[in-house]
């Protein structure tokens, strides 16, 4: 499907599930692996891939034909997952000011809500919104609380939030409407480092509840590594 005259979007389905996303990630790698000049970006999302090209070098019809004949993962193939990341999180209080609200929404105690959030293994479906922001899913039904009606003007870096069946980590301080339940001391975006992005599509994330002293210790370590 043309997305204007400089991009083509290929859809693999119209729902959020790991099989469809695996096909997205596999196709993204295949397209990127062609090293065609004039391809500016290959962007995987939940269930589609957008190929951004220089319209002075490519016509959409020629590119569409070439994309059509590239191999795709079949719908019954699962594809391989990326790296499993264990992300330490201090839940609640000033780090996760919406935890009580989320727990009340779920009909759980805060401790049970933490347990449920941290016992689920999440897939990185895509990155978007701000540099390195991972859309993780799927959040168990009871915790799937909608966004706040009014976004916060500044969400601290490292905040872990929930929006419907998605959970995510704010890589840097930005405005945001997700319900904040905790914060990680692990930087997931290094603007100037050789590997700026910790998480990639198809990686897996498991959150690990930690206490404040552990948070402080890991924060200090992260700052040291930065300098």
């Amino acid at each position: 499907m043309p997305l204007g005259d400089s991009a083509i979007t290929i859809e693999f389905g119209d729902e959020i599930n790991p099989q469809i996303n695996a096909r997205v990630v596999a196709f993204t790698k295949t397209v990127a692996g062609q090293s065609w000049s004039g391809i500016l970006d290959v962007v995987p999302t939940y269930r589609s891939v957008t190929v951004v090209f220089d319209p002075l070098l490519w016509s959409s019809s020629v590119l569409a034909k070439k994309l059509n004949v590239l191999p795709q993962l079949q719908s019954n193939e699962m594809g391989s997952n990326g790296i499993l990341h264990e992300i330490p999180v201090v839940y609640g209080e000033k780090w996760g000011p919406d935890l009580e609200e989320v727990a009340a929404f779920a009909g759980l105690t805060p401790a049970q809500a933490i347990e449920l959030h941290a016992s689920t293994r999440y897939r990185v479906y895509m990155l978007g919104f701000s540099p390195g922001f991972p859309y993780l899913g799927l959040v168990p039904d009871p915790l799937a609380i909608p966004r706040r009606s009014t976004p916060r003007t500044k969400v601290p870096a490292g905040s872990v939030g929930i929006a419907d069946h998605q959970t995510g980590i704010y890589p840097s301080a930005t405005p945001g409407g997700w319900r904040l339940i905790g914060r990680t001391p692990i930087p997931i975006y290094h603007k100037t480092g050789p590997n700026p992005f910790l998480l990639k599509p198809s990686d897996l994330v498991q959150f690990k509840p930690i206490e404040q002293d552990e948070f402080d210790r890991l924060s200090r370590e992260a700052q040291r590594d930065d300098h």
Binding site: L3, G4, A7, T9, D14, T45, T50, V52, M126, G128
Partner: peptide
């Protein structure tokens, strides 16, 4: 609608 990629001019 499930979020997907945007472009300038969309």
């Amino acid at each position: 609608f499930i979020s997907d990629c945007t472009t300038m001019g969309a």
